[in-house]
Simulated scan of single mutants.
Amino acid sequence: MIPFNTSIVSGVALSKIDGETKMLLMKRVKGGFWCHVAGSIEGDETAVEAIIREFDEETKIQVVDLYNAQFLEQFFEASVNVIELIPVFVVLCPANQEVELNDEHTEYKWCSLSEALEMAPFPNQHAVYQHVWSYFVDKPINPLYRVELT
């Protein structure tokens, strides 16, 4: 039997950078690959509380415009024999959003979809980025995806 892990959340930040919509990718210290924001749910946090905290910790982005991306990132992590199921969120940031990385990442880049697909190594990342671009950039965002923050 292969267990499931559902204790991780992830999020893609979007911002208009010099007038063009871009998504945030960061280079991880562990593994040295490019990725979006992700992290574990702590204690009795909800997924929404966890993604807000992760954005603050990893980027200092204050989440005020949050959406359920309507997508589950999923992959098999062979080293621990676990299937990861990760809800994806989208954060709409103000234009030219500033980023301040913590020690989990060495650099960041605001990317077009094609740049993100070139930089990110994993097929599941590509699926996330294509989905987010399709539903949050290429067409008007469905208001039903909005997550109300309290």
Rank of each mutant, 00 (worst) to 15 (best):
E58M: 08
P140D: 14
L66A: 06
D65G: 01
A127L: 14
M26T: 03
F89V: 11
Q97L: 10
T21A: 09
L113N: 07
L25C: 03
V80E: 11
T150D: 13
N102I: 08
E54Y: 00
P87G: 02
V48W: 05
N5W: 05
S7H: 12
E73W: 03
P143S: 07
F4G: 04
H105L: 00
A50P: 08
C111N: 09
L24I: 07
C93Q: 05
D103E: 12
F33L: 11
V99N: 13
W34Q: 04
V99T: 12
F75S: 00
V132S: 05
V29K: 13
T150I: 08
V82G: 08
F136N: 02
E107T: 09
D65K: 07
G11Q: 06
G43F: 09
Q97V: 11
E118T: 10
P143N: 06
K27I: 07
A69C: 08
E115F: 08
V90M: 06
F136W: 05
M119K: 13
P123L: 04
F89R: 11
V63L: 15
L101P: 02
A47F: 01
H36K: 04
V137R: 07
D138R: 12
C111Y: 08
G39T: 01
F136L: 02
S15G: 11
D138W: 04
P121M: 07
A13M: 12
G39N: 05
I8M: 10
N102R: 08
N142C: 04
M26P: 04
S114Y: 04
R53Y: 09
Q74Y: 00
F122K: 15
E115H: 05
L25G: 01
E57F: 00
R146L: 02
L14V: 00
K139W: 04
E42S: 12
I86A: 04
L85I: 14
Q62V: 12
L101Y: 10
R146H: 03
F75P: 02
V12Q: 06
E115G: 03
K16I: 02
I51V: 14
E20A: 12
Q125C: 02
K22G: 11
K139E: 13
I141C: 03
G32I: 09
V63K: 15
L149H: 05
E77V: 13
H131A: 07
N124W: 12
